[in-house]
Amino acid sequence: MARIRKPGDRENLDALILISPLLILLSIFILYPVLSNIYYSFTKWRGFGAAEWVGLKNYRMLISDNKFHSALKNTAILLLYIPLGLLVPLLLSAIMREGLKGWSVFKAILYLPNVLGYIILGILFSVFLRNSGPLNTLLRSAGLDVLAINWIGTTKSAIHVVGVLFVIWSKIGFGCIYFLAAMSSIDTQLYDAARVDGAGWWRILFQVTIPSIRFAIEFWVVLLFIEVFARAFGFIFAFTYGGPGFSTWTLEFGIYILGFKNYQMGYGSAWAVVLFLFCAVIAYFQIRLIRRAEK
């Protein structure tokens, strides 16, 4: 070889070979779609033929669309469940930390909902909670008719049931395992010192445990935001199919119905741009956390 190679040259070439399959696939199926979606949000397109430029029309439509308002409001309601989605697994793992060391049976139970996935969970609970379903039948036969409300059949309660089940319940198991793993790396001397100072359970929780796993907590909150904005489609699809009415529509679900059921793909793209912006903000925070972890 005529050219004198620097030692780094080969490593660069190797790296390029290794990462190019990933980068090519990502460019075609994620990066380019994210970008070209912005263009299509300014067009009228029915999924076939040419897209027709309509300027800001889709965005004007968004502003006055009830379905869009509904989707935003529902997302906001789901976000309100995030504090509990943090506190419940955090407290549970603080309790379990005392006696739970590698107790695999418990882990298995906690993990079950996670493994089944959102679609199976959605169907399971849609059957269990429907007005004539097992839960209400049991409640009625126990004389508790007041409690046997039409959980997912009324517009008022449906989104809150989604909030409790999706944001809190479905993540308790994973959250516990996640926080227990983080807590296991806390220096036990910190606890001993706190106990010598006479600190009680709650003080230890707030002054030792929580500060020590602050990082994991921040990650968890970002994860819950991602779940609400970007991972709820399967659960909503199987659990309520957006209903009743638009009462459990989210941005994701709206894009599906508008784009793929109503063939308003240009308009659906405008929804997707809004969803993209929300996710980009969340992604920014997650990247910041990861960068801090790398250091």
Binding site: P33, Y40, A230, I255, C279
Partner: peptide, 10 residues
């Protein structure tokens, strides 16, 4: 992070 639905149409 982006959900499938952000890129679905494209």
């Amino acid at each position: 992070i982006f959900p499938q639905m952000v890129v679905s149409v494209q």
